[in-house]
Amino acid sequence: MEEWLYIQTEVYPALLKGFWVSLELILPSAICGLVIGILVGVLRVYGSRPVMAAANAYVALFRGIPLVVQLFIWYFGLPYIGIYLSPFTAAVLGFALCSGAYHSEYIRGALLSIKRGQMLAAQSLGFHKVQMIFSIILPQAIRLALPGCGNEIIYLIKYSSLAYMITCIELTGQGKILASNSFKYTEVFLMIGACYLVMTSVAALILGRLEDRLRLPGFEHHRI
């Protein structure tokens, strides 16, 4: 009975608060990350040589440095050059840039798999490069990249839990506070795990729906 009261009066409100903060972190990070990933992916395939090199360097950097370190740099490092970010802004910035680097790799792979004939046909109609990329190549490539990009979004939902390291108290941060006050680590973190599982499951469901909606007639998956 005492347990139940504890959950009702302390755990539930704290986790709910944390849950909303998590969502507020995840949604803009996922959207910005995807946009960055698409643009960087395009530049890595179709950019001029220096642009391509710069885009590749961005990916090498943000994919190669642990995310926690990146968050520390945004939050604790930038003040050295006079830029002060709130914990929330620093976290979203860190997540979006990291996520974008991963997305760009899925987009790049998909762009490279579009047959050359699609480009020849567009060029022969008088399309210029940017028109061709955005109205012919990308709509096809995004469909191919979607499973990979979905994977990255699900991953983002989980690594959003790193935000509490730079004092942005989201779901995991709230849990940490609760658990260290009550020493009920197992109970609290089981509940937190369940919350993430719900978020990732809902995301997977939405992504699956999206894949179905974007599926082109004639390209259905056939069971063999």
């Binding site: 004939g117 020849l120 046909a121 567009a122 060029q123 109609l125 008088g126 210029h128 096809q140």
Partner: peptide
Amino acid sequence: YAYRQKVGMIFQDFNLFDHLNALENVRI
């Protein structure tokens, strides 16, 4: 680009845009 609009090209393997239906292929 202006010249290419005036010189149409038909390919051996069609090269229709896979993500568009027939009408959209012609319209785009």
